[in-house]
Design a protein around this nucleic acid. Structure first.
Lengths: 161, 161
DNA sequence: GACAAGATAGTAATTATTCTCATCTAATAA
DNA sequence: TTATTAGATGAGAATAATTACTATCTTGTC
């Protein structure tokens, strides 16, 4: 149920093709393909700025003035759960802090969102193969390994999903 | 004013040494080194679980029952601004979404938090050099390049900081 | 077209974070 | 030490982000 494991959308697909894909995915998942969902998905496909739920709400409202913010949040969560869309770095709901000043990276569990440290020495150095877009000055690379922690991976009592 | 550019704390430093470092940093930054700040910093040094502000508040309250949540938030922000602590993946304040299903990474501006796409093909493959902690199943690696976008880097009108 | 499962809009409730302001305290100089 | 003062604190109000609740409405199926 993750983007990696399913037919991949090509960036050059026109929206018609994507919409067809979206409908198939909904059908396969047993999700009614409502007008709201299609418009929301379209807004996501057309966005290039990694929008927040609020931003999407504003955009979708132009097409469906009666849509409610709750519907946007509800469907975003459903889309994420089914791997139809992705989130920019796993969102923890709140700021997460550390005093560890040593260069290191993180393992993040996609289920419980627990964070584990990963010493930088355990990760192959990162090198860029091509120039970065327009004057972006990179200060450092942060690597996050996303997956399942032991706890979440093991005793799958078939509850969620 | 970033952790990379200053004397680095060693993980095996005892707390006394760290506290001394902390006091020097405060002095250098012109920050009064209050009791609350020391206790908060200590809680951060002792934490291994990447706590949220709320979690820190609970812990610090055991030492200073009268401390307020506002003080915790205020000082966290100050510590972050001065590079005394770090945050686990740049926090956007809200969920940020994308429909782009292609393997890719992100450039994130540490100032304005704008996000730019970075095709996976532009980044050297990541390889782990050593085993991951206790049964963590990695599904994919996410790379974030943190730095300053063109806009934030260029016209520094000396306002913030 | 009728039914059932599930979705929607609207609103209330929660959680996360910031702000305001009347005191209070750390750092400095006498 | 004490006086001074810039800046910090605590308490609570205000705002932002997210979730929950519920009466009604749609989608997908027969």
């Amino acid at each position: 149920m993750h983007p990696q494991r399913r037919a991949r959308i090509q960036p050059d697909m026109d929206f018609g093709t994507r919409l067809e894909w979206f409908r198939n995915e909904c059908a396969a998942a047993g999700l009614p393909c409502t007008h709201q969902r299609e418009v929301l998905y379209r807004a996501l496909v057309e966005a290039t700025d990694h929008p927040s739920p609020e931003m999407l709400y504003e955009r979708v409202k132009r097409k469906i003035p009666s849509i409610s913010l709750g519907t946007v949040y509800r469907n975003i969560k459903i889309f994420l759960d089914h791997g139809l869309i992705g989130e920019v770095s796993l969102h923890h709901g709140s700021l997460r802090l550390e005093a560890n000043n040593e260069p290191h990276h993180h393992l993040v569990c996609r289920q419980c969102r627990k964070v584990f440290d990963l010493p930088a020495s355990g990760v192959h150095a990162i090198r860029l193969r091509r120039a970065l877009p327009e004057g972006f000055q990179v200060e450092r690379f942060v690597v996050e390994a996303h997956g399942l922690c032991q706890e979440c991976a093991a005793p799958k009592k078939r509850r969620s999903n």
